Computed example of a mutant assay.
Amino acid sequence: MTLTNKGSARLFKKSSLTVALSSAILASFSFQGVAAEDDEITKIERVQVTGSRIRSAEAMSSAPIQVVDSAAIDASGSLNIQDLLLENPAFGTPAISRTNSNFNTASAGVATVDLRNLGSNRTLVLVNGRRYVSGVPGSSAVDLNTIPSQFIERVEIMTGGASSVYGSDAVAGVVNFVLKDDFEGIEFEGQYGESSEGDDESRQFNFTSGLSSSDGKGHAMFHLGYSDQGAVFSRDRDRSAVDQFSGIFFEDDPVANPGSVFDAVSPFLSSFPPQGRFSAGDETFTFNDANTLQNSFSTNGGDGVAANGFNRSGVRTIAIPTEHYLFASNGSYELSEKHSFFYEGTYAATTTVSELELFPLTVATKI
């Protein structure tokens, strides 16, 4: 911003944004009289605006709000809105997602959000400002798989605690999904992708339509969606193909060397093979892959003995396959200037398959 002293102040704009300064704001600036010729220019190095009359819903809020609009959602190409939200540093590691629910029996493949790692039960999820049905048995956590990304107009994220308004389930904050209500026409989307390793195939197909009544008082939208995300197995990644143990190891003499180091031991195989193990006295036996009797186990080898335990990572899943069907619809009609009605409906069906090792079995025999 450059100000000239030629009898009157002239404001030169350096951007396309027009800024209106009222007389009250101009009066707050203090100008010192400087003897200058007409062609001399005085440059202001800094102008600090302590107030603004530009209207903003976020600025008027009593709590900080972040907004993710539909353009950002479309540009991300995410099959699930959870993938996009996790790029925001305000969100912590979700309690349940497709990549960490392999051991869950009732919530495999569910997608939740967790503000600041305070727990999914403390992050309130709303749809159009209203509470949404839970997607996890015995919990208030919402499954984001049931919210169609193509239906979302914007996502409002209140990163400050709102327990005084919404209760204890909003201690971490509130995530409000505002759905579109004025879409007209027909939209079809298709997407396919896979990882650089040739797995984790993903495909989705979405059909969305909207129409309005001739008098403009009524509106309805419909959405049909299908998505299929393939599996990623631990055995297909070098870093996770073999069981390992990571932890803190103390020096050989903790008194003389009180320090500790964080290290990983690989392989660190299990002594509980899926075929079971049998103890007789002080010895333990099992049948190996060749169906021959094997005496004792070695989790990580040593003393001339190779590691001969069971590699659990060979059958575990990093990302579980998830197939998802979704139907959603909403509509409204204005009965009069003061009366109107609306409806919202969603149907979601998800199929997941988890794969992991069998539960261990051991039989002890006293001799």
Rank of each mutant, 00 (worst) to 15 (best):
D38S: 07
K14W: 10
D282Y: 13
S332G: 13
T93Q: 09
N121F: 08
V363F: 12
K13N: 07
T317H: 06
A162K: 12
A111C: 03
V125P: 01
L17F: 07
V174T: 06
G218E: 02
S97A: 09
V353G: 10
G109C: 07
Q294A: 12
V136F: 14
R46Q: 13
A220Q: 08
T123Y: 07
R98V: 05
F205A: 09
F151A: 02
N117C: 03
A24P: 04
D215F: 07
G190Y: 10
S209P: 00
N176Y: 04
V67T: 06
Y343E: 09
K43Q: 03
F207Q: 00
E156N: 06
A57N: 01
F278Y: 15
E156T: 05
K366N: 14
D228C: 01
E355C: 10
G331A: 11
I152F: 04
Q275N: 08
F103G: 10
R53G: 03
G304L: 13
S16M: 05
P254Q: 12
F262C: 09
D143Q: 01
S22P: 06
G302V: 10
N330G: 06
T352R: 13
S354F: 08
R316M: 12
F207E: 00
L11E: 09
V142C: 01
T159M: 07
Q82H: 03
Q32L: 07
N128E: 05
G160D: 14
R239E: 13
S78Y: 01
S28I: 08
F297I: 02
L84H: 09
F285H: 08
A231N: 05
L269H: 03
T352I: 13
L118H: 04
F278T: 05
S22N: 15
R130M: 15
E156P: 01
Q66N: 07
A106R: 11
V133S: 14
S227G: 02
V127P: 00
D182Q: 13
S140M: 14
T146A: 04
N128W: 03
S332H: 14
Q32S: 11
T365E: 14
V67N: 02
S202R: 14
S61Q: 02
Q229P: 01
E184S: 14
E251W: 14
P321G: 04
E184G: 11
P321E: 03
L211C: 08
F287L: 10
F29T: 05
E283Y: 14
N291Q: 15
D69T: 12
V68G: 01
G161K: 07
I65K: 02
D236I: 01
E37C: 03
F278P: 00
Y347C: 02
P94Y: 02
E194A: 15
V125T: 08
V174C: 03
D114P: 02
T208S: 00
F207H: 03
F205R: 03
Y192F: 15
S8D: 10
A319W: 02
L11K: 09
E337Y: 12
N288S: 11
E37H: 09
Q204A: 04
N330E: 08
P267C: 11
L3E: 07
D253Y: 13
G135R: 02
G173N: 02
S212Q: 09
I186H: 04
S134T: 15
E323D: 09
S22M: 11
S15M: 06
T99M: 10
F177V: 00
T50R: 13
M158S: 11
I25C: 02
E201T: 15
S16G: 08
V353T: 15
S354E: 14
S149Y: 01
H339M: 14
G230D: 06
T99F: 11
D199F: 10
R98N: 11
